[in-house]
Design a protein around this nucleic acid. Sequence first.
DNA 1: TAAATAGAGTTGCGTTAAGAGACCAAATTA
DNA 2: TAATTTGGTCTCTTAACGCAACTCTATTTA
Lengths: 156, 156
Amino acid sequence: MARKRFDDSNCSVARALNQVGDWWSLLIVLHAMYGTRRFVDFQQELGIAKNILCDRLARLVDNGVLKKVDVGEHGSRFEYRLTEKGRDLFPVVIALRQWGDKWNPAPDEAPLDLRDRATGQPIQTVQVQNIEGDPVTVRDVFVSGDAVPGSKKDTA
Amino acid sequence: MARKRFDDSNCSVARALNQVGDWWSLLIVLHAMYGTRRFVDFQQELGIAKNILCDRLARLVDNGVLKKVDVGEHGSRFEYRLTEKGRDLFPVVIALRQWGDKWNPAPDEAPLDLRDRATGQPIQTVQVQNIEGDPVTVRDVFVSGDAVPGSKKDTA
DNA sequence: TAAATAGAGTTGCGTTAAGAGACCAAATTA
DNA sequence: TAATTTGGTCTCTTAACGCAACTCTATTTA
């Protein structure tokens, strides 16, 4: 978290990072995807300070990633649930998880094995695909409208 | 950027965020993917303070995301190039970009149109797929080895 | 050859945000 | 009624960010 914000950046990645680009926000979203909904559960699972958690949850709600639901049961009771916008971060989170599993594997532990409920099989590695479904790397793409596609990035 | 680090977390997402989870690092990687390699270019394109840029570049090099290459041409000259590990962040960056384009579109500007060099066609939306290639959402997956798959997260 | 410029940092300083822990209030449970 | 749970606020310390100025080397330019 820093001083400079990117709300008005013309780069959608920067704007996205503005909403979920700090350490905690994406972890909160991740845990929400795993089923966590309550303030105390987030706090205990993440080991985050309460004031920071308050701030992050409120910001995520403001940004429409989570919605705060009053559930009248026991204690002061609210639930933070993913919105469609929040659930739509699934590919981002999974891509990040797979990248972490690949390049920074836990020394002791096996990576989390996510499986499709329908087939019982592991999910695929998230990849960028072209129109035909073939995987493409950063070297295979160009920005449409660019002056000279391929002038710089093809040797990165 | 905060105090708490996650180097030893048993969550690969947390460990990944530890390496590229601050605002600047992913933007640096993004620009590197677009072809930026020089210190001054990063600085001007990102509008980042030089000391912060120094720190982030060094950290990304330490983490193996970038490599620092001495190019003996003019001036004190170095280039920061993506490693395979860095290039492997492509799906993460693209997924984030697409999420940003979808949920926080620029008021004036059209989203960046990335196209496949081979076909000239736009790339697909990044998605999580099951073994058969069908897209799955967060509600369609469970953690293998979990006690009761489907007990909590299917109503998130 | 001297001066100016550019690349890549480093250092110092003020501002802002993160983190820990204490405290608080409503609603529940015992 | 007392104790607990839940969700949140307050203060204080520390760390990170951002700016500007400075360094150092190599390369142009005059």
